[in-house]
Design a protein around this nucleic acid. Structure first.
Lengths: 160, 160
DNA sequence: GTATATAATAGTCAAAGATGGTCAATGGAG
DNA sequence: CTCCATTGACCATCTTTGACTATTATATAC
């Protein structure tokens, strides 16, 4: 039997046939299907997760929205899946760097992007004895900033 | 959805396209948009803060005004130092995002790089009850991977 | 001329409105 | 029974407004 969730899923996929990303009002959609707004979240969580190849972005408050972005899996069908599996729930710096280097060599990320990634996952950025997340975030972010701007004059920033 | 605040923001940015600083009447602008004058303050506070790269000056009384000044790199001799200081030892997600957006608007980082940075400092990436740094790193890294590959066909990866 | 009142601005802050998110309890299909 | 689906109460976040406050220029009183 066509479940409500299935219908909502199909409805959204229909909307996304043309565009790789759409924006919708959670409440509106819920009203359209005559269900609880949280039902929408359920559908998104179970059928539009990262594993399914989608990214959900949203915003609350007046003018709020839910944006669904379809990730493109390129040549290799489950490319992202493969990557994510390789990383798993835990990954050391060496492995992470190897993956980054590989992506960079395959021209899937630029040199600068690779550098950004390395700095974000570096020992320096994460190996702190901290509890507060803001403190940790600052460390990560600083590291990325340094990476991005340490060679200001050597980069063709305008070209990118 | 085009929110009032968004419209006002765009309106102001349009005005500033040519000039690095503009002057306006708060009440006039409010009237133009048919909203409460304090709405203007809200927009300025949330979209034209120092973190966003703007400075607000104003004057009350007859002939009062609000001046919005876009900061330029020249205003900040040690650009990186300024950035790092602004981040400090602790920074919340909101501020970090404002800085990233500003860097992006100033074309100092690409859209993709901005996205990478945002994902690295996002709540999603860092708000974990962390014990093992590898676990945290995995979260950060996954986040960045997702960000990097979410819209392959829309990017001119070959150009970069 | 100075002091004072008045008008013309802008700022602050807390409350209300408008969305979306989470999670645990409940329902229902196989 | 068990698992997926559905709901609703409660939470979080963003926007908009309005009452009250602060500051400045100008007109008026003396």
């Amino acid at each position: 039997m066509a479940q409500l969730s299935d219908n909502i899923e199909q409805f959204i996929k229909e909307l996304m046939r043309e565009d790789a990303h759409i924006e919708l009002r959670r409440n509106e959609l819920a009203h359209h299907f005559g269900c609880a707004p949280s039902q929408i979240n359920y559908v998104l969580a179970t059928r539009f997760s990262v594993d399914h190849g989608y990214i959900i972005e949203s915003r609350r408050g007046g003018g709020g929205y839910v944006r669904i972005v379809r990730m493109t899996t390129r040549d290799e069908p489950n490319f992202l899946d493969t990557l994510l599996n390789r990383v798993g729930n835990s990954v050391n710096e060496e492995t992470a760097n190897a993956i980054i280097t590989n992506l960079n060599e395959r021209k899937m990320i630029t040199d600068r992007e690779a550098a950004l990634m390395r700095s974000a996952v570096s020992r320096n950025a994460l190996a702190l004895p901290i509890s507060a997340k803001d403190v940790l975030r600052a460390a990560v972010f600083k590291n990325m900033l340094i990476q991005a701007f340490k060679n200001l004059e050597e980069d063709e920033r305008d070209d990118v």
